[in-house]
Simulated scan of single mutants.
Amino acid sequence: MYHIIVNKMAGNGKGLRMWKETEKFLVKRSVTYHVSFTEYAGHAGKLIENIDENLIHAVVVVGGDGTIHEVVNKLVHKSVALGIVPAGSGNDLARSLRVPFDVEGALSRILKGSYQLIDVPKAGKEHFISIAGLGFDGKVAEVTNRSKSKRLLNKLGLGGLSYVLNIFRVLFTYQPSDISVAVDGRLHEFEDVWLIAVANLPFYGGGIMICPDACGNDGALDICVVSGIGRWELLFVFPLAFKGKHIKHRNVTMLRGAVIKVSPNSAMVMQCDGEVVQSGTTVFSVEEKALKIF
């Protein structure tokens, strides 16, 4: 049986529309399922907290990356697989895994039953699936999640642009920090750091390919550090990240490792899969092939 988790408010109501399409598809195909609807932040995780692995074949999320993030934290090392019907504003996990953005395509992929095992990173005790970002992008995620522009753009079907717009809002007030980054025990020191992205998969922010070579089953995390760059030059570099071409810029450093310790000299906002979490000195690690995903 499939347990469907629906965030009706994902994409400012897109979740509800896609659930109605999902329901029609499942009924037409005579698929056995149970559906639960989220009512508040954190509810998706609670809905599957005591999931019966003998009864449930897969949890299918009709929602965005935030809802998926909650579910992933409950499915690590379980026999239950994760399926995705992308209904958020960014849908970066679906983009990274090439999950179709239409209901029929996404569900057909799930019903084929062929899953892959992917790595699940941890930021401290918090699992994430795609990317954790500290600094500038963490602050942008924080501002985006509470912005009116996100809700408006979602209504227009342009939800991914909300992150881009808020980059400009944060750009002229953000203050870079000095940071130490230890990668598998090797220490790297950076001054005037704008952001550090620790990636299991390539995309975040609604299509920004911040770590283009990140692979979800290689047992390692890719790290992108942007440091020592002026605000106006950062504006030039930013568009390059949509194609992953920023990595050749002199102020961008790419690293890779299995255990990463990030130690900022001042407070930094951190996001995991777009959800703002507590930060400070943080150790990132990888639990290899810990999640089944369609």
Rank of each mutant, 00 (worst) to 15 (best):
I167K: 00
K20G: 00
L93R: 04
A199Q: 11
I4D: 03
L158I: 12
G66N: 09
D137V: 07
I131L: 08
S30V: 01
L255N: 10
V71Y: 02
G66K: 07
D137N: 12
L153P: 02
F25E: 04
I223P: 07
V193G: 09
P202W: 12
Q271H: 14
G13P: 01
V85R: 00
L165Q: 00
H246K: 07
I179M: 13
R109Q: 10
S149L: 01
S263V: 15
V99R: 02
T281E: 15
H246T: 10
K78W: 05
L165Y: 05
R98D: 09
V198N: 05
Y33A: 00
S149E: 03
F203N: 11
L153M: 06
K112V: 13
T144M: 05
V269F: 00
N145D: 09
Y33L: 01
K243F: 14
I51S: 02
L201E: 09
I196W: 07
M9E: 12
V259E: 14
A44P: 03
K74Q: 13
I84D: 01
D218K: 11
S177L: 02
K148C: 00
T281F: 00
N265W: 02
S177G: 03
A267Q: 07
H3A: 05
G230K: 12
F172G: 01
Y163R: 08
L55N: 06
R29H: 09
Y204W: 11
Y33E: 02
A81L: 10
L158R: 13
A182H: 02
K292H: 15
N217M: 08
K261N: 07
A58R: 13
M18L: 15
K20M: 08
L75I: 13
T173W: 01
I167S: 03
S180T: 14
M18P: 00
F294L: 11
K261S: 12
E39S: 04
M268S: 04
V71A: 05
E70G: 06
K243G: 10
I229V: 15
L291M: 10
P264N: 09
W194S: 06
R169Q: 03
K122Q: 14
L153F: 05
L234K: 08
D273T: 14
S147E: 06
Y40Q: 05
K148P: 00
K289W: 04
E23L: 07
F238S: 09
A81I: 08
L201G: 06
V198W: 03
L240Q: 14
L111S: 06
G124V: 14
T22K: 01
E53V: 14
D184T: 07
P176I: 13
G207P: 07
H43N: 12
K20V: 05
L26Y: 02
G280M: 02
F136R: 12
M270Q: 08
S30I: 00
F172M: 05
G159Y: 01
K28S: 08
R169E: 03
Y115F: 15
W19C: 04
H188Y: 15
V198S: 05
L55W: 00
V225D: 12
F101M: 14
I5W: 01
H249K: 15
D119H: 12
K74M: 09
G280V: 02
K245E: 15
V198Y: 05
G244Q: 12
Q278H: 04
E142R: 08
P202H: 15
I5K: 07
G216Y: 10
N91P: 07
V237D: 04
S114T: 10
K289V: 05
T281V: 14
G257H: 10
D52W: 06
G219P: 07
